[in-house]
Protein backbone atom coordinates (compact mmCIF):
# COMPACT_ATOMS: atom_id res chain seq x y z
CA UNK A 1 0.00 0.00 0.00
CA UNK A 2 1.27 3.39 -0.97
CA UNK A 3 -0.28 6.72 -0.02
CA UNK A 4 1.55 10.00 -0.44
CA UNK A 5 -0.19 13.26 0.35
CA UNK A 6 1.44 16.40 -0.95
CA UNK A 7 -0.15 19.63 0.24
CA UNK A 8 1.69 21.71 -2.33
CA UNK A 9 0.43 19.67 -5.27
CA UNK A 10 1.61 22.33 -7.71
CA UNK A 11 5.17 21.11 -7.15
CA UNK A 12 4.34 17.79 -8.78
CA UNK A 13 2.56 19.58 -11.63
CA UNK A 14 5.68 21.69 -12.22
CA UNK A 15 7.98 18.66 -12.07
CA UNK A 16 5.92 16.85 -14.72
CA UNK A 17 5.84 19.87 -17.02
CA UNK A 18 9.65 20.05 -16.67
CA UNK A 19 10.43 16.48 -17.67
CA UNK A 20 7.57 15.17 -19.82
CA UNK A 21 9.13 16.28 -23.09
CA UNK A 22 12.59 14.93 -22.20
CA UNK A 23 11.61 11.48 -20.97
CA UNK A 24 8.75 9.36 -22.34
CA UNK A 25 8.42 6.55 -19.81
CA UNK A 26 10.04 6.12 -16.41
CA UNK A 27 9.86 4.17 -13.20
CA UNK A 28 8.94 6.14 -10.09
CA UNK A 29 10.58 4.51 -7.08
CA UNK A 30 8.97 4.76 -3.72
CA UNK A 31 10.82 3.89 -0.51
CA UNK A 32 11.11 5.09 3.07
CA UNK A 33 13.50 7.79 1.82
CA UNK A 34 11.05 9.32 -0.59
CA UNK A 35 9.53 9.40 -4.05
CA UNK A 36 12.21 9.38 -6.72
CA UNK A 37 12.88 8.91 -10.38
CA UNK A 38 15.93 8.39 -12.52
CA UNK A 39 15.55 8.30 -16.27
CA UNK A 40 17.42 9.05 -19.47
CA UNK A 41 16.14 10.70 -22.60
CA UNK A 42 15.69 8.38 -25.59
CA UNK A 43 19.12 9.30 -27.01
CA UNK A 44 20.88 8.55 -23.69
CA UNK A 45 22.49 11.99 -23.72
CA UNK A 46 20.72 13.46 -20.69
CA UNK A 47 19.63 11.98 -17.38
CA UNK A 48 16.97 13.25 -15.00
CA UNK A 49 17.14 12.62 -11.28
CA UNK A 50 14.22 13.61 -9.07
CA UNK A 51 13.92 13.27 -5.31
CA UNK A 52 10.96 14.25 -3.16
CA UNK A 53 11.91 13.30 0.41
CA UNK A 54 9.29 11.57 2.53
CA UNK A 55 9.49 14.32 5.19
CA UNK A 56 8.17 16.81 2.63
CA UNK A 57 4.84 14.99 2.39
CA UNK A 58 2.06 15.66 4.87
CA UNK A 59 1.33 11.95 4.93
CA UNK A 60 3.75 9.34 3.64
CA UNK A 61 2.90 5.68 3.71
CA UNK A 62 5.00 3.22 1.75
CA UNK A 63 4.72 -0.29 3.19
CA UNK A 64 7.35 -1.73 0.90
CA UNK A 65 9.60 -0.45 -1.85
CA UNK A 66 7.59 0.02 -5.02
CA UNK A 67 8.59 0.84 -8.56
CA UNK A 68 5.83 2.21 -10.73
CA UNK A 69 6.29 2.51 -14.49
CA UNK A 70 4.50 5.49 -15.91
CA UNK A 71 4.16 7.29 -19.20
CA UNK A 72 5.18 10.80 -18.22
CA UNK A 73 3.09 12.46 -20.90
CA UNK A 74 -0.03 10.73 -19.59
CA UNK A 75 0.90 11.49 -15.99
CA UNK A 76 1.38 15.15 -16.89
CA UNK A 77 -2.04 15.18 -18.59
CA UNK A 78 -3.66 13.92 -15.39
CA UNK A 79 -1.78 16.29 -13.09
CA UNK A 80 -2.70 19.19 -15.36
CA UNK A 81 -6.27 18.56 -14.21
CA UNK A 82 -5.28 19.41 -10.62
CA UNK A 83 -5.75 23.00 -9.52
CA UNK A 84 -2.63 24.94 -8.59
CA UNK A 85 -3.73 25.10 -4.94
CA UNK A 86 -4.93 21.50 -4.81
CA UNK A 87 -3.60 18.87 -2.42
CA UNK A 88 -2.40 15.88 -4.46
CA UNK A 89 -2.44 12.33 -3.10
CA UNK A 90 -0.77 9.46 -4.95
CA UNK A 91 -2.22 6.04 -4.12
CA UNK A 92 -1.33 2.54 -5.27
CA UNK A 93 -1.72 -1.03 -4.07
CA UNK A 94 1.25 -3.37 -3.87
CA UNK A 95 1.37 -5.36 -7.08
CA UNK A 96 -1.50 -3.40 -8.60
CA UNK A 97 -1.53 -2.32 -12.24
CA UNK A 98 -2.68 1.24 -11.73
CA UNK A 99 -2.00 4.39 -9.72
CA UNK A 100 -4.57 6.90 -8.50
CA UNK A 101 -4.03 10.63 -8.31
CA UNK A 102 -6.47 12.34 -5.99
CA UNK A 103 -6.92 16.12 -6.12
CA UNK A 104 -8.55 18.00 -3.26
CA UNK A 105 -9.35 21.69 -3.43
CA UNK A 106 -7.99 23.69 -0.44
CA UNK A 107 -11.44 24.05 1.16
CA UNK A 108 -12.34 20.40 0.43
CA UNK A 109 -15.37 21.30 -1.71
CA UNK A 110 -14.06 19.44 -4.75
CA UNK A 111 -12.42 16.03 -4.79
CA UNK A 112 -11.33 14.30 -7.97
CA UNK A 113 -9.60 11.03 -8.60
CA UNK A 114 -7.81 10.02 -11.75
CA UNK A 115 -6.68 6.45 -12.23
CA UNK A 116 -3.81 5.72 -14.59
CA UNK A 117 -2.57 2.39 -15.88
CA UNK A 118 0.97 1.47 -14.93
CA UNK A 119 3.39 -0.05 -17.41
CA UNK A 120 6.36 -2.39 -17.27
CA UNK A 121 9.49 -0.43 -18.01
CA UNK A 122 12.83 -2.11 -18.42
CA UNK A 123 15.09 0.71 -17.29
CA UNK A 124 18.71 0.62 -16.30
CA UNK A 125 19.58 2.46 -13.11
CA UNK A 126 22.90 4.27 -13.37
CA UNK A 127 25.27 4.89 -10.49
CA UNK A 128 26.12 8.58 -10.30
CA UNK A 129 29.46 8.97 -8.51
CA UNK A 130 29.92 11.66 -5.87
CA UNK A 131 32.02 14.33 -7.56
CA UNK A 132 33.88 17.39 -6.37
CA UNK A 133 33.05 19.79 -9.18
CA UNK A 134 35.72 22.16 -10.46
CA UNK A 135 33.26 25.00 -10.76
CA UNK A 136 29.81 25.63 -9.32
CA UNK A 137 27.71 28.53 -10.56
CA UNK A 138 24.56 29.56 -8.73
CA UNK A 139 22.45 32.12 -10.51
CA UNK A 140 18.83 33.23 -10.97
CA UNK A 141 17.01 30.45 -12.82
CA UNK A 142 15.18 32.98 -15.01
CA UNK A 143 18.51 34.49 -16.07
CA UNK A 144 19.90 31.08 -16.99
CA UNK A 145 16.73 30.31 -18.98
CA UNK A 146 16.97 33.64 -20.80
CA UNK A 147 20.62 33.01 -21.74
CA UNK A 148 19.91 29.51 -23.10
CA UNK A 149 16.91 30.77 -25.08
CA UNK A 150 18.77 33.76 -26.51
CA UNK A 151 21.85 31.74 -27.51
CA UNK A 152 19.74 29.05 -29.19
CA UNK A 153 18.54 31.67 -31.68
CA UNK A 154 22.17 32.05 -32.82
CA UNK A 155 23.69 28.58 -32.49
CA UNK A 156 23.08 24.94 -31.54
CA UNK A 157 25.70 24.54 -28.84
CA UNK A 158 26.87 26.56 -25.85
CA UNK A 159 30.42 26.74 -24.60
CA UNK A 160 30.31 27.35 -20.85
CA UNK A 161 33.61 28.65 -19.46
CA UNK A 162 34.21 29.48 -15.83
CA UNK A 163 37.24 31.63 -15.09
CA UNK A 164 38.19 34.17 -12.43
CA UNK A 165 36.40 36.72 -14.62
CA UNK A 166 33.05 34.96 -14.25
CA UNK A 167 30.99 32.51 -16.26
CA UNK A 168 30.91 32.91 -20.02
CA UNK A 169 28.24 31.42 -22.27
CA UNK A 170 29.26 31.45 -25.94
CA UNK A 171 27.76 30.21 -29.17
CA UNK A 172 28.33 30.53 -32.87
CA UNK A 173 26.09 29.97 -35.83
CA UNK A 174 25.68 30.84 -39.49
CA UNK A 175 24.70 34.45 -38.74
CA UNK A 176 27.47 35.18 -36.23
CA UNK A 177 28.59 34.67 -32.66
CA UNK A 178 27.37 35.57 -29.17
CA UNK A 179 29.06 35.81 -25.77
CA UNK A 180 27.34 36.46 -22.47
CA UNK A 181 29.45 36.90 -19.36
CA UNK A 182 27.91 36.82 -15.89
CA UNK A 183 30.06 38.03 -13.03
CA UNK A 184 29.73 37.10 -9.41
CA UNK A 185 27.18 39.41 -7.80
CA UNK A 186 26.47 38.96 -4.13
CA UNK A 187 25.68 42.61 -3.41
CA UNK A 188 22.03 42.41 -4.47
CA UNK A 189 19.34 43.02 -1.86
CA UNK A 190 17.50 39.82 -2.66
CA UNK A 191 19.44 36.52 -2.36
CA UNK A 192 17.44 35.02 -5.24
CA UNK A 193 19.01 37.57 -7.59
CA UNK A 194 22.58 36.72 -6.63
CA UNK A 195 25.13 35.07 -8.86
CA UNK A 196 27.72 33.10 -6.95
CA UNK A 197 30.68 31.42 -8.60
CA UNK A 198 32.82 28.89 -6.75
CA UNK A 199 35.81 27.89 -8.83
CA UNK A 200 38.60 25.48 -7.98
CA UNK A 201 39.98 25.26 -11.52
CA UNK A 202 38.97 27.09 -14.71
CA UNK A 203 36.72 24.81 -16.74
CA UNK A 204 35.31 24.96 -20.24
CA UNK A 205 32.76 22.56 -21.77
CA UNK A 206 30.40 22.50 -24.77
CA UNK A 207 26.78 21.36 -24.56
CA UNK A 208 23.78 21.03 -26.87
CA UNK A 209 21.45 24.00 -26.33
CA UNK A 210 18.42 21.89 -27.24
CA UNK A 211 18.83 19.96 -23.98
CA UNK A 212 19.70 23.02 -21.90
CA UNK A 213 16.51 24.69 -23.10
CA UNK A 214 14.54 21.60 -22.18
CA UNK A 215 15.99 21.68 -18.64
CA UNK A 216 14.94 25.30 -18.19
CA UNK A 217 11.29 24.19 -18.24
CA UNK A 218 11.97 23.57 -14.53
CA UNK A 219 12.48 27.32 -13.96
CA UNK A 220 9.09 27.73 -12.15
CA UNK A 221 10.31 25.27 -9.49
CA UNK A 222 13.09 27.45 -8.09
CA UNK A 223 14.31 31.03 -8.22
CA UNK A 224 17.92 29.84 -8.36
CA UNK A 225 19.64 27.21 -10.48
CA UNK A 226 22.98 25.55 -9.75
CA UNK A 227 25.23 24.59 -12.66
CA UNK A 228 28.11 22.29 -11.65
CA UNK A 229 30.96 21.67 -14.06
CA UNK A 230 34.07 19.53 -14.23
CA UNK A 231 36.16 18.93 -17.32
CA UNK A 232 35.33 15.67 -19.10
CA UNK A 233 32.18 15.13 -17.02
CA UNK A 234 28.46 15.72 -17.56
CA UNK A 235 27.19 19.08 -16.33
CA UNK A 236 24.59 19.04 -13.54
CA UNK A 237 21.79 21.60 -13.72
CA UNK A 238 19.94 21.51 -10.41
CA UNK A 239 16.65 23.05 -9.33
CA UNK A 240 15.81 22.69 -5.64
CA UNK A 241 12.21 21.72 -4.90
CA UNK A 242 11.49 23.80 -1.82
CA UNK A 243 12.92 22.09 1.24
CA UNK A 244 11.85 18.65 0.08
CA UNK A 245 14.21 17.67 -2.67
CA UNK A 246 15.59 18.43 -6.08
CA UNK A 247 15.28 17.99 -9.81
CA UNK A 248 18.71 17.43 -11.37
CA UNK A 249 19.54 17.20 -15.05
CA UNK A 250 22.82 15.65 -16.16
CA UNK A 251 23.99 16.38 -19.69
CA UNK A 252 26.93 14.71 -21.43
CA UNK A 253 29.30 17.21 -23.03
CA UNK A 254 30.07 17.49 -26.71
CA UNK A 255 33.50 16.35 -27.80
CA UNK A 256 35.74 19.37 -28.40
CA UNK A 257 37.24 19.52 -31.86
Amino acid sequence: MLELRLVQGSLLKKVMESIKDLVNDANFDCSATGFSLQAMDSSHVALVSLLLRSEGFEHYRCDRNLSMGMNLGNMAKMLKCAGNDDIVTIKADDGGDCVTFMFESPNQDKIADFEMKLMDIDSEHLGIPETEYEAIVRMPSSEFARICKDLSTIGDTVLISVTKEGVRFSTKGDIGTANIVCRQNTSVDKPEEATIIEMETPVSLTFALRYMNSFTKATPLATQVTVSLSSELPVVVEYKIGEMGYLRFYLAPKIEE
Binding site: V45, E124, H125, L126, E257
Partner: peptide, 14 residues
Protein backbone atom coordinates in the same frame (compact mmCIF):
# COMPACT_ATOMS: atom_id res chain seq x y z
CA UNK B 1 29.78 19.79 -35.65
CA UNK B 2 31.05 18.52 -32.29
CA UNK B 3 30.13 14.88 -31.71
CA UNK B 4 27.77 14.26 -28.80
CA UNK B 5 28.75 11.91 -25.98
CA UNK B 6 26.29 9.68 -24.21
CA UNK B 7 25.58 9.83 -20.49
CA UNK B 8 26.07 6.06 -20.27
CA UNK B 9 29.78 6.50 -21.05
CA UNK B 10 30.19 8.43 -17.76
CA UNK B 11 27.85 6.68 -15.36
CA UNK B 12 27.85 2.91 -15.00
CA UNK B 13 24.93 0.57 -14.44
CA UNK B 14 24.32 0.04 -10.77
Amino acid sequence: VNPQRQITSFFSKS
